[in-house]
């Protein structure tokens, strides 16, 4: 296979990986601090994208500029979900959290369908006509913005967690909740903040995804969310670097592996299309990792 084609496919994988990473980090943060899993995290991505669409279509300004506003709105929604959904059922069992998020999925998906109908919505990016030549391939500017934005977000996130008081409190809470509470950290406030931050990251992922030429409809959230779960399971629960690496691996693998298999079986004169196997490959990786290493590639023992 031509090397430039391979590189182009690699870039598509990188782009998909960026979205998974943003989503997975938010999910991971919430899990780390609260030890709850929000299965409806993908729905936050979907609502975030809708809010951006709504702000954009009612104001008509550059869509990249409305992303911070929709991120803020989603952070507030995240706080509400935490306060009235997950906080009251804390400690009543993991199954209850799964059921609650199932209810949230039904609630959010159908509310979006009611508010914005089920027709797919798009945002016309102002830069959609600009192609940046990189060697033999040409990349639309929007992708480069997304990749750079993701890297910047990761660096900012890392600095926030390491340098600020709140970030330190979050890390302390995720290491040992009781001890953190004894040290005078208001753990409930930390819960709320981490949920807000997680929702905000989901909104960023959803908005960037929409602006880069994707569509949003009420059902787009589930698949990226499932991939994000796979990412944090593969990377190890609570491990941010694990999530980054696993996100990249998953994004690239699901794009590259089908093409490789296809060219491999072509050697034996079998013409078969494996591109529809993208999602199945994600689950296969997940299942294999869980069988071999139940705590994930970078997970701590006994988590």
């Amino acid at each position: 296979m031509d090397i430039s084609i391979f590189i182009q496919i690699l870039v598509w994988g990188l782009y998909a990986g960026c979205i998974y990473i943003l989503l997975a980090i938010g999910l991971n943060l919430i899990f780390g601090v609260m030890k709850v899993v929000n299965f409806a995290h993908g729905e936050l991505l979907m609502i975030g994208a809708y809010v951006t669409f709504w702000l954009y279509s009612s104001s008509g300004i550059n869509p990249y500029l409305v992303v911070p506003i929709s991120t803020f709105i989603m952070a507030i929604l995240g706080i509400l979900i935490e306060r009235f959904g997950f906080r009251p059922i804390r400690g009543t069992g993991k199954l209850n959290e799964i059921f609650l998020s199932l209810g949230l999925i039904y609630l959010l998906q159908n509310s979006a369908a009611l508010l914005w109908t089920t027709n797919s919505r798009t945002i016309h990016s102002p830069y959609s006509d600009i192609l940046v030549p990189l060697g033999t391939i040409k990349l639309p500017l929007d992708y480069i913005i997304i990749i750079i934005a993701t890297i910047l977000f990761l660096i900012a996130f890392q600095l926030f967690m390491k340098k600020t008081t709140i970030g330190r409190a979050m890390r302390a809470t995720s290491q040992n909740r009781e001890a953190a509470a004894l040290m005078g950290i208001n753990v409930e406030r930390i819960d709320m903040l981490s949920f807000a931050l997680g929702s905000a990251l989901a909104a960023v992922a959803g908005s960037l995804w929409l602006i880069s030429g994707q569509m949003v409809n009420p059902y787009v959230g589930s698949l990226p969310a499932i991939k994000a779960f796979a990412v944090i399971i593969i990377g190890g629960l609570g491990s941010i670097p694990g999530a980054i690496i696993a996100g990249l691996i998953l994004g690239i693998a699901e794009n590259v592996v089908p093409v490789i298999i296809q060219s491999l079986v072509a050697v034996f004169n079998v013409e078969m299309s494996f591109t529809a196997w993208k999602d199945t490959i994600a689950f296969l990786i997940l299942i294999i990792v869980l069988i071999l290493r139940p705590t994930g590639l970078f997970g701590k023992k006994g988590e």
Binding site: I89, L100, G103, L104, I105, Y106, N110, S111, L114
Partner: peptide
């Protein structure tokens, strides 16, 4: 239509709670 599923979602959340 959608209201129906919103109700089901709400019922689920309220019951868990």
């Amino acid at each position: 239509t959608y209201e129906r599923y919103i109700m089901i979602g709400l019922i689920l959340i309220l019951i868990v709670r």
